[in-house]
C-alpha cells in the first residue's frame, strides 16, 4: 500500500531504561506527567461546574430574598467560620510545602508536611461538626421540623438548605481529600516519590488547593452577607 499516510519506526529507543513508574501505554515519564496533570485540571473544571449549580441557586434566591439572606447569615457563627478559614489557608501552605519537599526529594519532610496538612484538615472538620451540631440543637435543619423565628422563615429555610448543601458538599470533598492524603502519606513514607516522579503528590496538592479555594468563596457568601449591621 503506497498511501503515504504513515511510516513505521521502532519506538523502543533502547538507550533509555524503563522507569518503574512508567505505565505501558505512555512513551515517556514526561508524557505521563503531562497527561495526569491535565487530567487533574480537567477534573477540577468539572468540580467547579458541580458547585456551580448550587451557586446559581444561591445567586437567584439572594437577589430575590436579600432580607432572608441577611437573617440567615447572621445565624452562622462568624468566629468559628473565620477560624476555619485560617485553618484551611494554613493547610494550603503546608500542602504546598509538602509538594515542594516531594519534588526536591525529601521524603521525611514530605511526610511531615502531609501529616500537618491532614491535621489541619481534621481540625476544620471537627469545627464544622460542632457548627452543624449547634444547628441541630436549634432545629435549624431544613425539613419538617425546621423552626425559625423571624419574618422570613420560609426563605431562611432555603438559605439554610443551601448552607448545608454547599458546606456539606465541601466537607465531603475534605473527607475525600483526607483519604487521598492518607494514601499519599503512606506512599511518601515508603519512599515512593523521587524528584523524577512525584506526580501523585502534586495532583493531590492541586485537589487540596481547589477544596480550599471553594471554602474561600463559601465563607463570604454564607457568613458575611450582612455583617455590616453588626459592626455599626
Amino acid at each position: 500500500m503506497a498511501d503515504g499516510l504513515v511510516a513505521h519506526v521502532d519506538s523502543h529507543e533502547h538507550g533509555e531504561a524503563h522507569h518503574p513508574d512508567l505505565q505501558h501505554h505512555f512513551e515517556t515519564l514526561g508524557q505521563q506527567h503531562e497527561a495526569a496533570t491535565l487530567g487533574m485540571w480537567v477534573f477540577l473544571v468539572t468540580e467547579v461546574m458541580f458547585f456551580g449549580g448550587l451557586l446559581m441557586a444561591y445567586l437567584l434566591y439572594r437577589v430575590w430574598y436579600p432580607e432572608a439572606w441577611a437573617e440567615g447569615s447572621l445565624e452562622l457563627d462568624i468566629v468559628l467560620g473565620g477560624f476555619n478559614t485560617v485553618v484551611l489557608i494554613g493547610s494550603s501552605l503546608t500542602m504546598a510545602l509538602a509538594v515542594r519537599a516531594a519534588q526536591t526529594g525529601l521524603p521525611k519532610a514530605t511526610v511531615r508536611w502531609l501529616l500537618l496538612t491532614m491535621a489541619l484538615g481534621l481540625t476544620f472538620l471537627v469545627v464544622k461538626f460542632f457548627e452543624y451540631k449547634h444547628k441541630w440543637d436549634l432545629n435549624h435543619i431544613p425539613g419538617e421540623n425546621f423552626t425559625f423565628e423571624g419574618p422570613h422563615a420560609p426563605q431562611v429555610e432555603i438559605f439554610i438548605s443551601l448552607y448545608f448543601a454547599l458546606t456539606g458538599l465541601h466537607a465531603l470533598h475534605m473527607v475525600i481529600g483526607f483519604g487521598i492524603l492518607s494514601v499519599i502519606t503512606w506512599m511518601a513514607h515508603r519512599k515512593r516519590f523521587t524528584p523524577e516522579w512525584s506526580t501523585p503528590v502534586e495532583l493531590s496538592g492541586l485537589y487540596w488547593h481547589f477544596v480550599d479555594i471553594v471554602w474561600i468563596f463559601l465563607f463570604p457568601l454564607l457568613y458575611l452577607v450582612d455583617r455590616v449591621h453588626q459592626l455599626n
Binding site: 441557586a57 437567584l60 434566591y61 430575590w64 430574598y65 432572608a68 431544613p142 425539613g143 419538617e144 425546621f146 420560609p154 426563605q155 429555610e157 432555603i158 438548605s161 443551601l162 448545608f164 448543601a165
Partner: peptide
C-alpha cells in the same frame, strides 16, 4: 425536605 425549588417556601 430541604428547600431548593419548593414554591411553598418561596422556591422557584
Amino acid at each position: 425536605g430541604f428547600g431548593f425549588f419548593d414554591p411553598r417556601l418561596g422556591g422557584d
